[in-house]
């Protein structure tokens, strides 16, 4: 069985992202990092592939910015990495993204399981997860908190999902796309040997032509980006003899401002 997972490079979550003087989104010279949610999907892909003696491939959609995350994935222990890119790709167009992602998965032999992290932290969205499953025509299981059993021979997967009301145990026939939550595992750190191997690796780039598809035309135009308006904030330090006195004053002020 081949297990596929996805990753992407995102601005460091501590970086200040803003619109620059040219109207473009910028995070200055801050480094990019692996999308933090992908740490868990990468770890889970490695673990599950080890259990079923299968293979692993990590895919990134987009430009060579994402090679860093692919190499990080290889250093963690994923066996293969590939980047999918296309002229005219709009990374904010989820239909384009999912079309490339699904075509790349279809290009990998014996892939039965695709694992996504919960979301892409830079855009705060997980819609490409569902769209990729839809393009593949596979079952989608989101917010998986534990893979209870991956039965390669029987062709099933049993998972625990976290839902608003509690936990849900589900069994589905493979192939399946899942997204995993933060607590599913403790991601490993890249090893020295892994880093050394990754540094020598060449990341292949697949194009729509390689995958036998045409990139759907984007229906999105980017008219303008604007920084949020400056917030009018005033601060006041509440004085008082005791904690109780200060707390009472705070409550009064919150009631006065109709916060409570």
């Amino acid at each position: 069985m081949h297990i596929v997972t996805f990753t992407r490079s995102t601005p460091d979550t501590a970086a200040k992202v803003e619109v620059d003087g040219n109207g473009a989104v910028s995070w200055g010279d801050a480094a990019t990092v692996v999308n933090p949610w992908d740490e868990y999907s990468l770890e889970e892909a490695i673990r599950q592939a080890t259990n079923v003696k299968g293979d692993t491939t990590v895919i990134a959609v987009g430009g060579d910015l994402h090679n860093d995350s692919l190499k990080h994935s290889l250093a963690m222990g994923v066996k293969n990495a590939v980047r999918v890119n296309a002229d005219g790709l709009d990374m904010t167009d989820s239909l384009q993204w999912a079309s490339l992602a699904a075509a790349a998965v279809n290009n990998i032999d014996d892939c039965q399981l695709v694992i996504f992290g919960k979301e892409h932290v830079d855009v705060g969205s997980d819609q490409v997860t569902y769209q990729t499953a839809r393009k593949l025509g596979w079952t989608m299981l989101s917010y998986v908190s534990e893979i209870l059993e991956l039965d390669a021979e029987g062709g099933t997967i049993k998972v625990e999902k976290t839902v608003e009301q509690g936990k849900q145990i589900l069994t589905a026939k493979l192939p399946v796309v899942i997204s995993v939550l933060k607590g599913i595992n403790e991601p490993r750190y890249p090893s020295f040997i892994g880093i050394r191997k990754a540094s020598k690796a060449t990341i292949p780039e697949w194009t729509p032509a390689d995958l036998g598809i045409e990139l759907p035309a984007s229906s999105i135009t980017h008219d303008a980006y604007n920084n949020p308006p400056p917030r009018d904030i005033t601060s006041e330090i509440i004085e008082g003899e005791t904690i109780e006195e200060k707390a009472a004053q705070l409550v009064d002020k919150l009631l006065e401002e109709k916060v409570l």
Partner: peptide, 22 residues
């Protein structure tokens, strides 16, 4: 334990013995 499991403390052992060969 974290350094050990990621192989950072065995980097000077040759690769033939499973080390990092650094």
């Amino acid at each position: 334990e974290t350094l050990t499991q990621a192989g950072w403390l065995s980097v000077l052992i040759p690769e033939t013995y499973g080390g990092g060969g650094a």
